[in-house]
Computed example of a mutant assay.
Amino acid sequence: MLVAILVLMAGTGAFFALGAAVTGGQPQAMDEDDRAVATSAAPTADALSPSASPSPDPIVPLYFSGTGTWTYAEPADTAVFGDAGTLLKYNVAVENGIGLDADEFSAFVRATLADARSWTAGGAWRFQQVGGGDADFTVYLASPEQRSYLCGSQNTTVSCRNGDNVVINSARWITGVEHWDGTLDTYRQYAVNHEVGHRLGHGHEVCPGDGEVSPVMAQQTYQLAGCTGNAWPFPDGETYVSGPAGDYNGPDLPPDDFVDQ
């Protein structure tokens, strides 16, 4: 089984880092007051909506466990990207011990957000990666356990966004989901764009019709619901693909578990 897992990880392009530096401490979890704020806020801002586990097997293998400490990536390029709109500064952190490289993850996040099909296309947002100091949000690549901690939820199977924490679950990063009809890289692009979209104030949308392109804010980790998988808010670089507001609401999650995907 372990050999099969390692082959799968290598075949899906998982990033392995030997001797990654241990920097930073464990981020603060939400306290009860923070949870009250998060669950009472508008769903397009701070509230986290229910979503589903992408895996029929909820057991998370031990190799997805990390140390609870973080390596913050130093940006290879600090230039602002995007032509107009509000500037948001972000940083990138990868949990130590999960075998994934902070610089490679950072480069992937930057390439995704800087793509002409991503959130800068609408002219409302610009982004700049910072290596430290003040940031408007942090993109974390976290073990399932730390994903649960960062988002104040017992869920360990999906990614999430909680306030300024944009959290990509390492289990999903490594394996994707079986029903995704693109490559692992396009699934990863979807995960980054979807969770950053929540940080920008977007709520969940659903598939507008069979055979149509899925909105990036649909819970595509759950299902495609008849749409084709889509990683981008502006797939043609100009037009935002939207659908009706709504959730796919996974049957395996309790109704009070505020998670995302």
Results as ranks from 00 to 15, higher is better:
G211Q: 02
L253C: 11
Q261H: 13
N230F: 00
Q28W: 02
A79D: 15
A124Q: 15
G133W: 09
E95R: 06
A225Q: 11
G211H: 06
S65E: 14
D34E: 15
S65K: 12
D260W: 05
D185C: 05
Y240W: 14
E95K: 10
L100A: 08
M217K: 09
S49C: 13
T23M: 05
D33Y: 08
M30Y: 13
S65H: 11
V60E: 03
E32Y: 00
T186G: 07
Q28R: 15
P233A: 06
D46E: 14
W180C: 05
T156N: 10
F81S: 04
A218S: 14
G133I: 03
M9Q: 13
T12C: 10
D57Q: 11
A114F: 10
D164P: 01
T228P: 09
S40I: 02
P235N: 00
T44Q: 13
D181I: 05
A116K: 11
I5D: 12
R188N: 08
A93Q: 10
L200S: 11
S55A: 12
F127A: 08
G82Q: 02
P255Y: 12
S214F: 04
R126H: 04
N96H: 09
V206A: 11
R126L: 03
T23P: 01
P144Y: 03
L141D: 03
R35W: 12
G246Q: 06
W119A: 05
P144Q: 02
I59K: 11
T39Q: 14
A76P: 02
L113T: 04
M30P: 14
W180R: 09
D185K: 01
F81P: 10
A107R: 09
D115S: 06
L113W: 03
A121I: 06
A121D: 01
H202W: 15
E212Q: 15
A41R: 11
G229E: 04
Q128E: 00
R147F: 01
F108L: 15
N165E: 08
T156W: 10
G131H: 08
L6E: 15
G163H: 12
A171R: 12
R126S: 02
N162L: 07
S214V: 07
R161L: 01
L200G: 12
L87N: 14
F108W: 07
Y90V: 08
S170F: 07
F64N: 05
S65Q: 15
E195Y: 00
T69R: 14
A29N: 07
V241P: 08
D236C: 10
A124F: 11
T12P: 05
T78L: 02
D185Y: 09
A14M: 12
T39H: 02
A114Y: 01
S118D: 11
D136S: 08
D103T: 13
W173L: 07
S118P: 07
G99E: 01
G123N: 09
L200R: 03
A171D: 04
G229W: 10
P235F: 07
S148K: 08
R172Q: 13
P54W: 02
A225R: 09
T120Q: 03
G203H: 00
P208H: 06
G197Q: 06
L18R: 12
T71A: 13
S214H: 09
I168Q: 01
R188C: 05
S143Y: 09
V206G: 11
Q261S: 15
Y63K: 02
S159Q: 00
G226I: 08
L100N: 07
F234E: 10
P144H: 05
G19K: 09
E205F: 08
D252P: 10
N193W: 03
G211I: 07
P27K: 13
V109F: 00
